[in-house]
């Protein structure tokens, strides 16, 4: 509700955006000037920038590309690096950002994913990790087989925060051990071959905090447990839990305040038991 003109801010402000025209091309900074309106968030800033299609110095420019959908912080689409921090553009309020850093807002694409254009990145690796850890309950099927297993209120209260993970990727962007993988298609490589090669590369790289937390969610579900061993094996395999350096950045940036480091600790204990189990099985 703070009135920026009254608080000493001017009627307009600058937005500095790191742009890139296509994958693999070099990036460049561009300045935009935006009129200040009440209750603005970074999404509405992007909408004004797109409608105006002019940089701060009046030069016609293509609208800046960005990803968004729900604008309520439940879909995870609009992650970008705003004033140096990976977060959701929808909940990044202009007045607060200008209080943090007067007169200018700085926008960059996420740093750990390949840029497709401007602020749009390819997060397919993030979703692929959910397949790697078998992030589902292995039900017999969708036929009517009665209710699910009874669960206590406490179990629900532990599971619910983990199941709110919206795959936004903030935890990954902030993680020092999650490093960017950017492949380029070979000259004679078909789209399908390239996709397969990409998948293969992703499958041996670090899973990330979000996927580790999902294994904890499914391993604690009464039916999901059936695959607990397989999920733990994935955590103990290449690109698994051992890569985590315990920087704890993930939990600090998670917009849904998911207890990611608690999940990592729980996963760590479970893999230790799994290791012993496997050792005794030999």
């Amino acid at each position: 509700m703070s009135d920026h003109a009254a608080n000493g801010h001017s009627d307009s402000f600058e937005v500095r955006i790191l742009r890139q025209d296509a994958p693999g091309e070099s990036s460049y900074w561009e300045r935009h000037r935006v009129e200040h309106e009440p209750d603005m968030n970074v999404i509405s800033v992007m909408q004004r920038v797109a409608a105006r299609a002019q940089s701060a110095d009046g030069k016609p420019v293509a609208p800046v590309a960005w990803d968004c959908n729900c604008l309520e912080e439940v879909c995870g689409a609009c992650t970008m690096v705003i004033n140096g921090q990976a977060r959701q553009a929808c909940t990044a309020l202009v007045d607060k950002l200008l209080d943090e850093q007067p007169a200018e807002i700085e926008l960059q694409p996420m740093q750990k994913f390949p840029v497709l254009r401007d602020l749009v990145v390819d997060r397919s690796r993030l979703f692929r990790a959910l397949t790697r850890v078998k992030g589902w309950v292995p039900v017999d099927g969708s036929y009517d087989l009665g209710p699910g297993p009874r669960q206590s209120r406490t179990e629900q209260e532990v599971a619910y925060p983990l199941s709110q993970c919206m795959s936004c990727g903030c935890c990954l962007d902030a993680c020092p051990q999650y490093t960017k993988i950017e492949l380029t298609p070979g000259v004679d490589e078909s789209a399908a071959d390239f996709a397969a090669r990409q998948e293969q590369t992703h499958d041996s790289a670090f899973l990330g905090a979000h996927a580790i937390s999902q294994t904890v969610l499914f391993n604690s579900h009464p039916t999901g447990k059936v695959n607990a061993g397989e999920r733990l094996d994935v955590l103990m395999d290449e690109g698994g839990l051992q890569i985590c350096g315990n920087a704890q950045n993930c939990v600090a940036v998670c917009p849904k305040e998911i207890p990611l480091t608690t999940s990592i600790a729980r996963a760590g204990r479970a893999t230790t038991f799994r290791l012993l189990e496997r050792w005794f099985e030999k």
Partner: peptide, 22 residues
Amino acid sequence: PKIIDLMDRLGVTFNRTQEGFL
């Protein structure tokens, strides 16, 4: 009612009563 049962089996974190029902 069958759809709620199915979603429950699929792992939806429905709120629970103290006895553990939906």
